[in-house]
Write a protein that binds this DNA or RNA. Structure first.
Lengths: 224, 224
DNA sequence: ATAGGATTAGAACCATGGTTCAAAGTTTGA
DNA sequence: TCAAACTTTGAACCATGGTTCTAATCCTAT
């Protein structure tokens, strides 16, 4: 799933050099992610990224094919981690509400804290068709995982009946939107924001009764 | 609040011409908004906008100072309408939950349906400093209005205690994110989406008990 | 120490796309 | 009908920014 970072046609000689090269690629990737987050993907220039990574603009192209690839790897890594987190939550034995909380926590962590992240769902438009397709595919898979989590909660009676697809999108929207207003120097920590959002977002699907298995009667949902 | 559409130094002669000119400006604005939504603000080119508005690229600049102004007017109009809707809701006498629902409905309407809208909160980055400042100011005002609505609901006991600021941001995030996935040709109508989202988003703050004035005991909020 | 590959720098290239311009066409008011 | 003002055009301008190129420098292995 996580393909080798080496993309080009480098015919590497020794193992030692390969290692060093790969490490450098990671450094650059992190620098790029930092710039992407700071300036926004569109505004981030290759020269700016190069400076952040402490190398010349031209040298960037020795390690990466272009801005596309840089952005792609950032997004790809992030989505992969979110997928892992969703799968881990799904496989756990805690109440679905807590599984959902775990996903929310991870999502915000990878969106706001991890150096690689923050641009996972943003600005996919600028990618070449094939790269974009890959990201969209994984992104959809992730969305489906969240949706499935909600549906499971409903089926178990832990959640109130609802349109799982729509609710999943609402949750992800609330989470993704944080990158628009979150500022590291702000008062609230990411962890605090995560708990606050989890409280609100999960409460929105929680069954009215404190039931654990009770097949609650259908409410809301069908107002026209 | 809604400043005259005439911005330039046009010394208009007759009233008749002024009217016609202003109407033309509106047509162009609508065309621009359509392109902004279809292609995204960044990808939307002046040539594309010109074609959509049925005039030459150069002619665009006779009516508008540039892409900035075009985008600004689109956003400004949309935010103004949302502000109006929020104020109307606030002034009404219905339960706060319904006031909130009204705001949600209006927000989605102006974001997804009105030709002028859809880019209200998006891509503010590309605006010149002074223009951006104006939009941000209004956007903040709007966010505060939503926040106030939530706080009012809590004070009245209609809503459960919560971090109003955070919840407001979550709601707005969920709403704004719709522009990322909504497709006019999709199965759900905007109205249906609005009701579904309102159900979920309002339920998240609704007081546990069906109370109307009951000072519910503080729940959630402080998990650390 | 030295050849050869790996790495680097920085200027130059070039496509994109916002914008300007000068000239021509159209409408209006007298 | 005529002149002035308004409108329109399409080519050209130009800044931005991703990318390429070439020559120099650094490392590693022998």
């Amino acid at each position: 799933m996580v393909q080798s970072l080496n993309s080009g046609s480098n015919k590497i000689a020794s193992e030692r050099m390969r290692r060093k090269s790969e490490a450098r690629r990671l450094d650059i990737l992190r620098a790029a992610a930092r710039v992407f987050r700071r300036s926004g993907v569109a505004a981030a220039g290759m020269r700016e990224i190069a400076e952040e990574a402490d190398l010349s603009p031209g040298n960037l192209y020795y390690y990466f094919a272009g801005k596309d690839e840089l952005l792609f790897f950032c997004q790809d890594r992030t989505v992969d981690r979110m997928l892992e987190a969703a799968e881990a939550a799904r496989a756990s034995t805690m109440p679905v509400a807590d599984q959902l909380r775990a996903v929310i926590r991870a999502h915000l962590h990878y969106t706001l804290e991890e150096l690689e992240g923050a641009t996972a769902h943003l600005e996919i438009d600028m990618l070449a068709d094939d790269l974009r397709r890959t990201i969209i595919e994984k992104r959809d898979k992730y969305e489906h995982a969240v949706r499935a989590l909600i549906a499971k909660g409903v089926k178990r009676g832990e959640f109130a009946p609802c349109d799982a697809a729509l609710v999943a999108r609402a949750m992800l929207g609330a989470l993704n939107w944080t990158s628009r207003w979150y500022r590291p120097e702000g008062a609230q920590s990411v962890a605090a924001i995560a708990e606050g959002l989890a409280d609100y977002l999960v409460r929105g699907v929680a069954a009215a009764a404190p039931a654990k298995t009770a097949p609650v009667r259908a409410v809301s949902g069908g107002r026209k």
